[in-house]
């Protein structure tokens, strides 16, 4: 059967295409442009080919920042996903407690990112910060400005505080959509608390968990503002993530070519890892059919 074709439909998507072109594709193309050329100002460009890409891929500085990013994202996911699930499971299902919980948990999400950084920068300070000063007072040697481990601890704690509620809220949305009959059937079948979680709640949360993992991975992998405000990438380079390094390179050192090449590699890595997460999780959901 022939479907009627109407080429005029293309005109209807044109506005969106233009909008996307101006907001995403054209800026991206200028980055591509920088990545394959060398410039010394005055709008003079010299063809550089793949030189910047090769330099980046062999740069130890890039490798180290990438490793820091991967470790950071792994830790963030390992803490926030289980913690978010636990928080969602222990949230009330009805009554006034629901609204109180939802508002309290949404609060960290509403704070501007650099403000979150400032809050924790002050909170962790040994001289005036509540956290830093308390730890010092009870005899724990803590100083995020001096010690790389303490810096990581502070940044991870900050990110958990900032973003776990997003995971929890997503999981909660998945949980409340489960009909009461499932729990009643489980009671009749004599299922344990663990079995209810494993065979009813977790499968029903699968979709929202996929979104949570993707969002948290992408955000944590591209994190910039909060660690920049707290540690500025230090001590040394110990908290210099790819994004911080990129800004240093592009705006600080004005190495536009290498920075552009790095942006593109960075972008491709985020895309690739997100695609892997998506494929693995959707396959698991379909699993075995």
């Amino acid at each position: 059967m022939d479907r009627p074709t109407n080429q005029k439909a293309w005109f209807l998507v044109l506005p969106v295409l233009l909008l996307v072109a101006f907001s995403a594709i054209i800026p991206l193309m200028t980055v591509v442009n920088y990545s394959v050329q060398d410039t010394f100002g005055n709008n003079e460009f010299f063809w550089a080919g793949t030189a910047w890409f090769e330099e980046m891929l062999h740069s130890q500085r890039f490798h180290e920042a990438l490793a820091r990013n991967l470790i950071f994202s792994a830790i963030i996911l390992a803490i926030q996903i289980p913690l978010g699930i636990v928080v969602a499971l222990s949230m009330p299902r009805k009554g006034i407690g629901v609204s109180i919980c939802l508002v309290l948990m949404a609060l960290p999400l509403l704070i501007p990112w650099n403000v979150v950084g400032t809050i924790w920068q002050v909170f962790g300070r040994v001289d005036i910060g509540l956290l830093g000063h308390t730890l010092e007072a009870i005899g724990i040697d803590y100083n995020y400005v001096r010690d790389p481990l303490d810096a990581w601890f502070t940044i991870i704690l900050m990110d958990v505080w900032h973003w776990t509620s997003l995971v929890a809220l997503l999981c909660y949305a998945g949980l409340v959509s489960i009909p009461e009959a499932y729990y009643q059937a489980a009671r009749i079948d004599g299922a344990s608390r663990w079995a209810v979680f494993r065979y009813i709640q977790l499968p029903k949360m699968n979709r929202v968990l996929l979104i949570a993992v993707l969002l948290r991975f992408m955000d944590s992998f591209m994190i910039y503002t909060e660690p920049f405000v707290v540690t500025g990438g230090g001590p040394g380079n110990s908290t210099t993530f790819l994004s911080i390094d990129l800004v240093k390179m592009a705006v600080g050192q004005f190495d536009l070519g290498p920075a552009a090449a790095m942006s593109i590699i960075y972008f491709l890595i985020v895309l690739l890892l997100s695609w892997i997460f998506y494929t693995v999780m959707t396959n698991y959901e379909r699993g075995g059919q």
């Binding site: 009959a181 499932y182 059937a185 029903k204 699993g287």
Partner: peptide, 18 residues
């Protein structure tokens, strides 16, 4: 419920998806 040896079939099919 679990001690009563009752079986119940609900309005909407309840199955364990996975």
């Amino acid at each position: 419920t679990e001690a009563r040896n009752i079986a119940q079939v609900f309005q909407f099919p309840v199955i364990y998806d996975t």
